[in-house]
Simulated assay, not measured.
Amino acid sequence: MSLFSELKLSVPWGHIAVKVWGSQKNPPVLCLHGWLDNANSFDRLIPLLPQDFCYVAMDFGGHGLSSHYSPGLPYHHQNFVSEVRRVATAFKWNQFSLMGHSFGGSVGGMFACMFPEMVDKLILLDSTPFLLDCNEMENILTYRRRHIEHMLQLEASQKPPRAYTSEELLQRLLSQNSHLNKDCGELLLQRGAKKVAEGMVLNRDRRISWPENSFDFMSKELFVQSARSLQANVLMIKALQGFYDVRRVHDEDRGPLLFMVDTLRSILKQRYQFVEVPGNHYVHMNTPQVVAGVISSFLQGLLPLSSQL
């Protein structure tokens, strides 16, 4: 499937950049990338999926080729959820499917609960529909304070982004994302960096460089209540060598994931599928053929084989 078009959707602070594969007359699938990634995250997966769908991969605000938020306007998880609604409005979709990797899955999950009638299928790639506060509650106020202080510091510094050579930038990305291979790192930088006189700089807004500026956490009680609102069929794909918590220090604690899987299975019943696959957090980029078959069957309404966690 060849790339059909690159579009810029107008928003009050500029534009949201999207990549479109296939005819817009086909059923739409909106693809949401992970934190600090961009729409190129899906370049290797989408050509392996059924061609009778229209796949739209968006850059979240402050990522990739999308506009940065206006000075003084902070980023919050809710903002990214609202961007999904803006994209759906721009394409005049009444109902569509969502496929999200990592952070994109949590944004998609929140949207599917807030606008349940609009989402018919939800695909979570090494992701969960929400982030639980199991290990975070005592730190929430600290995160919110740091969010404000970080934004004020960046506004006061007025320093231009640091420039690197192409190789330096690639090595920096790979050192910060040990699950990415070299080819996929280069693919993300094609959209996530640009040339300046001094070398290469990252496109992304520096205000999103800390996870607490973009993520949100919810209690188990709110998770259960939100899951009950889901009308979509849900496919959760868990990479066996992937991440289990947004904080690496808690990554051995699989309790929150088990709770979410059990809750979704109990509430959604036949509308929920859980599949474990070999690979790491970027399995959809590094070895997309591992997940393409499961996703294809799900999109086409076929029941994939479930693996028990």
Rank of each mutant, 00 (worst) to 15 (best):
F243T: 04
S23T: 07
L222A: 09
R146Q: 13
R162Y: 07
S127A: 15
H76T: 12
R85E: 13
R204F: 15
N177Y: 02
I208V: 15
S10W: 01
A227T: 05
R162G: 00
L48H: 06
F259P: 04
L98S: 02
D253F: 15
S266H: 07
E198W: 00
L124H: 10
S229M: 10
F274G: 09
Y272Q: 02
Q51D: 14
H33V: 02
S166I: 00
V11M: 05
S229G: 00
E117S: 14
N79D: 01
Q270T: 14
S219Q: 03
S10H: 06
S226Y: 12
G109T: 10
S306Q: 12
L180D: 04
I46R: 05
L170A: 11
V283W: 04
D43A: 13
L305A: 08
M110D: 10
F298C: 08
T263M: 09
V56K: 02
L174K: 08
D251N: 15
A232C: 13
G100M: 08
C134H: 09
K195A: 10
K19F: 15
S97C: 13
K92D: 11
M236P: 01
S102K: 08
G199Q: 09
G34W: 11
N213I: 03
K220N: 12
E252N: 14
L169Q: 03
L7R: 04
L9H: 01
Q289S: 12
L131T: 02
Q78S: 11
S67C: 14
Q158H: 15
S82Y: 09
F298L: 08
F96E: 00
L257F: 13
F91N: 03
N213R: 02
G192M: 09
S127G: 10
V84D: 00
Q95A: 01
L9T: 01
N26L: 10
K195D: 12
K19H: 13
E138P: 00
L3N: 01
V224K: 05
E252F: 09
N181S: 08
G22T: 02
L131M: 08
Q241L: 13
G293R: 08
M236W: 12
S157K: 14
R145A: 05
V119N: 00
S296N: 08
G109A: 06
S41H: 09
S306N: 14
V294A: 05
L302Q: 15
D37V: 00
R206P: 07
A292H: 06
L48S: 08
S2G: 06
A292P: 11
V294Q: 08
M118N: 13
L32K: 04
E138M: 02
K25Y: 03
C184S: 12
F53Y: 15
K121W: 07
L7Q: 07
Q225W: 02
N177T: 09
F103C: 04
P71R: 03
M236F: 09
L305H: 10
H150R: 05
A17M: 05
M285G: 13
